[in-house]
């Protein structure tokens, strides 16, 4: 074998190997453990921040750092499970003028693509909330631990983009338009 041929052969062999390995390392399927996971939002009311959580949600997470193309998040949030640690505020949030949970009981987030960032990963996805579907990017970190993983991240959205604020609540003077979402999901392998 000439030296040239040997080099070409090696290149071909490594390409085959890489393809085989890449194919094997598809995105692993996880589901969020509801008892350890937390989905939180922070709003600003009369100049002061307040936090709330959604107690009930399901998250089907297919993710692998080396298989971003086949990664996929599908998150469903039961909006009536909102808890901002005040019943008056929760009633208002569930009401027709804000989330209108009677007509739109769930929010749905589905990703379309992922990119690697300096600190972690970024996803582009569509959030359907109150009958409106709009892109909301999220930034997150993914930490594998054993068979499970931890997914931590945040997103920013504007509540009025989704109509979450009708009538008097359309004003942003006393309740800010911007709402921060943050999440910490403990992922378990999906069976």
């Amino acid at each position: 074998m000439t030296k040239r041929f040997r080099m070409a052969f090696t290149r071909l062999l490594s390409l085959c190997l890489a393809t085989a390995l890449g194919g094997a390392a598809g995105a692993a399927g996880f589901t969020a453990d509801p008892s350890q996971s937390r989905l939180e939002f922070t709003g600003v009311q009369a100049g002061a921040a307040f936090k709330g959580v959604f107690h009930k949600f399901t998250a089907a997470i297919d993710f692998a750092p080396d298989a971003l193309a086949s990664s996929h998040f599908d998150v469903q949030i039961d909006l009536s499970s909102v808890d901002s640690m005040d019943k008056d505020r929760d009633t208002t949030i569930r009401g027709a003028d804000i989330l209108d949970v009677a007509r739109f009981p769930t929010a749905h987030y589905v990703t379309r693509g992922f990119t690697k960032t300096a600190t972690g990963y970024s996803a582009v996805g569509a959030l359907t909330l109150r009958g409106v579907t709009k892109d909301v990017p999220i930034d997150f970190q993914f930490t594998q631990s054993g068979a499970g993983a931890k997914l931590e991240g945040s997103a920013q959205l504007k509540r009025l983009d989704f109509g979450a604020g009708q009538g008097d609540w359309k004003s942003t003077e006393w309740v800010a338009d911007a709402v921060k979402i943050s999440f910490s999901l403990i992922l378990k392998p999906r069976s």
């Binding site: 100049g47 002061a48 307040f50 505020r89």
Partner: peptide, 13 residues
Amino acid sequence: AKNYSVSWFGLFT
């Protein structure tokens, strides 16, 4: 106690 933080005219909490 009601978890409504108090802002001072929106300048600080």
